[in-house]
Design a protein around this nucleic acid. Sequence first.
DNA 1: TTTTACACTTTTGAATGCAAAATTTGCGAT
DNA 2: ATCGCAAATTTTGCATTCAAAAGTGTAAAA
Lengths: 221, 221
Amino acid sequence: MLHEEVVGRIRAILLDGEIPPGARIPERELCERLEISRTPLREALKVLAAEGLVQLLPHRGSRAAKLTDKDMRDLFEVCQGLEALAGELACERITDAEIGAIAAAHDEMVRHYRDGDLIQYYRGNRAIHEAIVTAAGNPVLAGLYTSVTARIRRARYVTPMTPQRWALAVKEHEAILNALQRRDGVGLAHILRAHLRHKREEVLQAGFAETEGNDVTLRIA
Amino acid sequence: MLHEEVVGRIRAILLDGEIPPGARIPERELCERLEISRTPLREALKVLAAEGLVQLLPHRGSRAAKLTDKDMRDLFEVCQGLEALAGELACERITDAEIGAIAAAHDEMVRHYRDGDLIQYYRGNRAIHEAIVTAAGNPVLAGLYTSVTARIRRARYVTPMTPQRWALAVKEHEAILNALQRRDGVGLAHILRAHLRHKREEVLQAGFAETEGNDVTLRIA
DNA sequence: TTTTACACTTTTGAATGCAAAATTTGCGAT
DNA sequence: ATCGCAAATTTTGCATTCAAAAGTGTAAAA
């Protein structure tokens, strides 16, 4: 198993909440499960610690990082900035074909909205946001975006929404698509920022910070 | 020696250009020099690879990452976005004391400009940009900023400037300070973006991409 | 009964050793 | 002299091992 694959698998375990935020990461167990020894596992944990997904305590092992309200706020704030930048750049560089693909994804997402299928809606939603970032044509930006969104993914794509909020989000997505089609970078940046600001308020109001005894996984079910 | 210290020391070696971009990283030598064994060294290298400072080639060791023109452009683009965001947030949150400190740093920097001391000018310049990011009060943002700026530091703070460009940069810094004092977030974001755009053009024009046979260190001397 | 001291266990962090892969060296053929 | 190929050497990646630190349990003393 390659180094990057080890990192990826542990990242998946953490993002799935299989090891819940704040819990200790059992080196021995993970080694057995991934069928590797402690050396490559520990290398991966240090990388994930640098990413912010794992917290290393000297001589006390590693834990799955826990996000406070402040962390969540900071991450959303940065995410807003990154998506706004991506939107502006995308408008300069996006091809008609890419716009077409996003429009198709948008229509499909709206169908899931009408069907009331939140899971599928979120899936499409995420694909659109990622497509915009990709269209920006900046791998550095894409990398930071991936890393920041990974940390808030569970909160962002798991929060239940009220009908009102959901309707607003869909409306905002109409505006996002529209700005893209007009290649209105400044406008797109604005609407993306507002869109994420609303999402953040939603998440924080729902109390989704990963603090003591707040098991998000339970709430999902 | 603590893990973070190992990472820091290798980072410094790379940023100083002691191991020039593209060169192989000699594990054995570094181990002896840092007086550690290969295990912690390799952990550090993987972390630095995740940061983009080191390139890992499976079964072929690690090299100091080399930046192409495109990489440089992408990094500056992201840096613009991060600084603009930091500027906006800073205007919302900065204290009078912090503004005072930045004003003092600014005055000192201008003195170095008048003295024609580019090294000291750059040092002060960097301190101001970092102070603005700090004033944004967002550690996630600060972390990304540190990591992105580290990668372009040599280009950013080493490029020789023409008198015209230097004068323009100082003028822009007057505007930066002014916007901060007025707590004009949008204005500050704009001027920071323009400032960095100019810097990027300067760097790219100077041909500072770390491509084959382009030893930046030589040019500094 | 509560607290503290102490031995014991577990776990962490790092050095060493070993097999596999890659690079370099040496030699023969053209 | 140059090219090609095989043997030798080096280097990489990982498993194992070892010392040190943290955690745990027990028993004695207050």
